[in-house]
Amino acid sequence: MTSSLHSQSPAGASDPASGGRRGLPWWLAIAGAAAAAVVVNLLIFSIGNAADASFVVPQPNAKPQTVGAGGVIFSSSVPLAVGAGIAVLLARWWPVMLRVAQAVGGVLALLSALAPLSSDADGATRIALASMHVVVGVAFVAALEAYRRRRIAR
């Protein structure tokens, strides 16, 4: 009697359909991605401060907006968590929504990076803020991919 490795793999084994990597439950994928985005963006914020970035963004017809560490934490985690949460909920009925949300979220993050790049802020501020937008987009796509791999493994 012979048995295949794939038919009797232990609970901790990788799934061949997901490229050898296991996925994560939705809550862990989203929380982990949000935490990673916050850490990386705070690092970018620190580097920007060291490079004398003002983190003051002039607003048309309004008072200039100053970006602080609290704003970086909030803006790095909340939109990512809300968007990924909505995508996960919609994927319960339409599994293709995970891929659609990954594409839309990635494109929106890149497009949103144009806003700080086109602002009248100093160069270091523009580069730091645009980089933070890209980090959130990458974390969003990664979170949904980790959850998608878990769904495939079932």
Rank of each mutant, 00 (worst) to 15 (best):
H133T: 07
A124H: 04
S131D: 04
A84I: 02
V107N: 04
A87C: 09
V100I: 15
P95W: 05
L129R: 11
L110K: 05
A124Q: 14
A115L: 14
V100C: 01
L129G: 11
V100T: 14
T125I: 05
V138Y: 07
L110Y: 06
I86M: 07
A130M: 08
S112C: 08
I127T: 15
V134S: 04
S119G: 12
L129N: 08
R126D: 02
D120L: 13
H133P: 00
S112K: 04
A109C: 08
I127W: 13
A113W: 08
A91E: 00
I127Y: 12
G106P: 06
T125S: 13
V107Q: 07
A84F: 04
L90F: 12
P79K: 04
L89F: 10
L90G: 13
A121P: 12
V88W: 00
R126F: 01
G105L: 05
W94D: 07
A84G: 08
D120F: 07
M132K: 11
A130C: 06
W93P: 04
D122M: 10
A130V: 08
G83W: 00
V135R: 07
S112E: 08
S118Q: 14
G105E: 04
G105M: 01
G137K: 11
R99Q: 12
R99D: 13
M97R: 03
H133C: 14
Q102V: 01
L117D: 11
A87F: 00
A128V: 06
A115P: 02
L80W: 03
V100E: 03
A130Y: 12
A113F: 03
D122H: 12
A121C: 08
V136K: 01
V134D: 05
A84E: 03
V88G: 00
A91W: 02
G85F: 00
S131G: 15
V96T: 13
V136S: 09
A115I: 14
P116M: 09
V88L: 00
R92W: 07
H133R: 13
V107S: 10
G83V: 07
P79Y: 10
M132G: 15
A109Y: 10
L111N: 00
G137H: 10
A87W: 02
V134W: 10
A113E: 09
